[in-house]
């Protein structure tokens, strides 16, 4: 059955810790222990290449999808350098790029599941985001950097894909960047963020559970994005899941907000932890709003410790170094 055959993650080596944040700015960021910071010579594409490089072998890819809200260019095809790095490409590679919201990761995965089913050839999903140097300091403080790669194949030894459901609505004013500008904006109306998130997640999850004849308790994990904890808990509760199903597969405390790579990094954490047969419900959410819900069953090859391995060996940086590295001073 179509599913995931391999996965891997990459995080930049530099880390800004909660202790350093508190020392310099006076208070820590809620829920954030430490976050990776990209070097000056890293961008979303180099992060993506590094995550893709963790996937073994030379699978002849038929398709590849890239998800990122922080690609180096706003206009041009950019997945080519990734295809080059993987020594794949040319006429026979079908590619897509997903760039407009944090939902991009699950959009890319949904496209690859369709492509692999249609072509019978393997496909790769790579999601990566880096903290953008623009925008207000409060928002930037939670932004991390990292990438995750998933190999989608007809034989999903890591996890098999069961079904998906999708939701879209018009929720203006949340987490947006107008054309021609670069800073993230938000109307900051109290409660609105949580309400829109909850409605979109429910809008994708409920039809999927109904179609599969399941209830939340049939799942070991609910995988959401790398959002702050209070939003995570509210979104889980809103569709009948518990903290015990969502908090263990939430990388945010060690990664910060990974944007388009958030939900798939959390999925990698779930695959690292899952026992064969465990059910995993993945939900990607993008403000604006849209949500994708995808149901998986963990296979024999899950549990490889990819996220912990990729996070190991970080190098703490002080606040000034962090500001210089992120181009803020």
């Amino acid at each position: 059955m179509v599913g995931l055959a391999a996965y891997g993650c990459y995080f930049p080596a530099a880390r800004l810790t909660a202790a350093e944040t508190e020392r310099v700015w006076g208070s820590p960021i809620a829920d954030l222990d430490s976050k990776p910071v990209a070097a000056a010579d890293e961008d979303a594409l180099t992060l993506a290449a590094a995550a893709a490089a963790t996937i073994d072998g030379d699978a002849a890819l038929g398709s590849m999808s890239l998800a990122s809200t922080t690609l180096p260019y706003r206009r041009r095809v950019q997945i080519g350098v990734l295809a080059r790095a993987l020594r794949s490409g040319g006429d026979s590679l079908f590619t897509t790029e997903h760039t407009t919201s944090a939902r991009a990761g699950t959009e890319a995965l949904a496209v690859q599941l369709l492509a692999v089913r249609a072509s019978g050839r393997s496909g790769m999903v790579v999601a990566a985001d880096v903290a953008s140097p623009t925008g207000d300091a409060h928002r930037a403080a939670v932004l991390g950097a990292g990438a995750v790669a998933l190999l989608v194949a007809e034989d999903g030894a890591v996890a098999t894909f069961e079904a998906s459901a999708h939701h879209v609505a018009e929720d203006p004013g949340l987490d947006f960047v107008p054309a021609g500008e670069s800073a993230l904006q938000d109307v900051q109306v109290s409660g609105y963020t949580q309400e829109a998130l909850g409605a979109a997640v429910r809008g994708a999850v409920e039809p999927l559970l109904h179609r599969l004849g399941r209830t939340p308790s049939d799942y070991r994990f609910l995988v959401l994005g790398t959002m702050p904890g209070r939003l995570l808990d509210a979104a889980a509760r809103g569709c009948g899941f518990t903290r015990e199903q969502s908090r263990p597969v939430w990388a945010f405390p060690s990664t910060g907000d990974l944007g388009a790579a958030g939900a798939l990094t959390n999925l990698a954490l779930a695959l690292d932890t899952a026992e064969p047969g465990d059910r995993i419900l993945l939900v990607g959410y993008g403000a604006g709003s849209g949500a994708d819900a995808l149901s998986f069953t963990a296979g024999e090859s899950a549990g490889r410790g990819a996220v912990a391995r990729a996070l190991a060996g970080g190098r703490p940086v002080d606040a000034l170094t962090y500001l210089r590295m992120t181009g803020r001073i």
Binding site: A13, A39, A40, D41, L45, T46, A49, A50, A85, R315
Partner: peptide
């Protein structure tokens, strides 16, 4: 260029990574 090294050692294993 060498990345993510503070004290390089002659003979240490390295691998190529794509960077800007």
């Amino acid at each position: 260029q060498l990345v993510d090294v503070s004290d390089p050692e002659i003979g240490q294993p390295v691998r190529a990574v794509v960077r800007r």
